[in-house]
Computed example of a mutant assay.
Amino acid sequence: MGGQDDFEQDAEDSGDVERRVADVDAAGHGERLDRWLTTQAPEFSRNHLQALIERGCVLADGKPVTKPAHRLRAGQRIEIELQPTDESRAFRAEAMALDFVYEDEHLLVVNKPAGLVVHPAAGNWSGTLMNGLLAHHAAAATLPRAGIVHRLDKDTSGLMIVGKTLEAVTALSRQIAAREVHREYLALAWGRADEAFVVELPLRRDPVSRVKMAVAPANMGKPARTDVFPLGVGEVDVGVQIRPVSAVHCVLHSGRTHQIRVHLMHRGHPLVADTLYGGLAALGLARQALHAARLTFTHPVTGAALALTAPLPADLAAAWAQIGAASLPD
């Protein structure tokens, strides 16, 4: 079977794409194309090479081959366009319009729109907040996660703190761990929530669905507490009945994944349009009705007290107006 050295690199190729050419020898006769390519380009995984085949990046005797299981014949000339993996592209700067509500040389606070993913991951290797931060300031490339010290779900809007120096990132991470960063949210939830209540229940990954979180049995999850305060109740026509919807102000005492969404669902108040947790879509919303509206914390370098707010984005503001509820209290 031909070795990696049998490939010739196209001298005209530049940038991240490399074209290699090799002839199949007698040992490669009858071999699967994807398996043979792993010996010719061992720096790439078989999964990535299969994806390249399916994209039409491989030619056999000048004709595209798009089936990884294609059987080779001795003497065939194989050409492959080796494109970088999506993961290798993840940590690239991408200029994007970001809404900064505060910024100095040590940190910034961004008002993240709904739909923007925070960190690159499978299915979202580019176009994330991290990519935008790498383009915003050069030092982000030297920091863990480009300085991001906490996250919001893709379809949750609102405020996030980002460190711009290692000193600030370290100090902010310690403040968050010590629960000294106070986070407040506005939400619309199904049901009548006209009295304040506290949900203090541990959370863990849902044992059935890995994309969800769930309330955990005692001593089996991570502690989590959410304080919920009513802001008003309205009624929504869902076609077959009129159902109450409550506007609520949520204060986190911990920052677990999906915490507000799971705690309110557990109390019978799933968020409007939070279909993952059983919240019916209504009021024109196409994403869960949750907004990180206020952050209060101590500046990690100057020691100044910072209290920052972000108004409801247009989709939530329109839904909020239909409920006729109060806004974030002072």
Rank of each mutant, 00 (worst) to 15 (best):
L107K: 09
A138Y: 00
Q83T: 12
I80A: 13
V110Y: 09
L133T: 01
D86F: 09
R92E: 14
A93P: 04
G75Y: 13
P84M: 03
Q83Y: 00
A135H: 14
G127Y: 08
E105K: 13
N131K: 03
N131T: 02
F91C: 05
I80M: 15
Q83P: 00
N111W: 02
H106K: 02
P84K: 03
L98I: 03
I78F: 09
E94T: 12
T128I: 09
L129R: 04
E81C: 10
T142A: 14
D86Q: 11
G132Q: 03
H119G: 08
T128G: 06
F100N: 01
L98G: 04
A114G: 13
N131S: 05
E103I: 05
L129F: 04
P113L: 09
G115D: 10
R77H: 13
V109P: 03
L98T: 04
D104E: 02
Q76H: 12
A135F: 11
R77A: 11
Q76I: 08
D99Y: 04
E105H: 12
S88C: 04
G132F: 03
V101K: 00
E94G: 11
A122N: 11
W125E: 05
E79W: 01
A141H: 12
D86S: 11
A121H: 05
I78L: 15
D86L: 13
L143P: 05
N111D: 15
R71P: 10
R71M: 09
A114T: 06
R73K: 15
E79N: 05
E105C: 06
T142I: 00
L116F: 09
L107Y: 07
L107G: 10
L116R: 04
G132T: 08
I78H: 11
A90Y: 07
R92Q: 15
E87Y: 08
F100D: 06
T85W: 09
W125H: 14
Q83D: 07
A138M: 00
A90K: 09
M130K: 01
M96H: 00
S88Y: 01
N111A: 13
F100P: 02
T142W: 00
A114I: 07
G123V: 08
L82C: 14
R89M: 12
A121W: 02
E79P: 00
Q83I: 08
Q76K: 04
Q76Y: 09
A93G: 08
P113W: 06
A97D: 15
L108K: 05
H137D: 14
L108H: 05
H136M: 01
N111H: 10
G127T: 11
N131M: 12
V101M: 02
P84C: 06
E103M: 13
T128A: 07
A140Y: 02
R89T: 10
T142D: 15
N131D: 11
F91W: 12
E94Q: 15
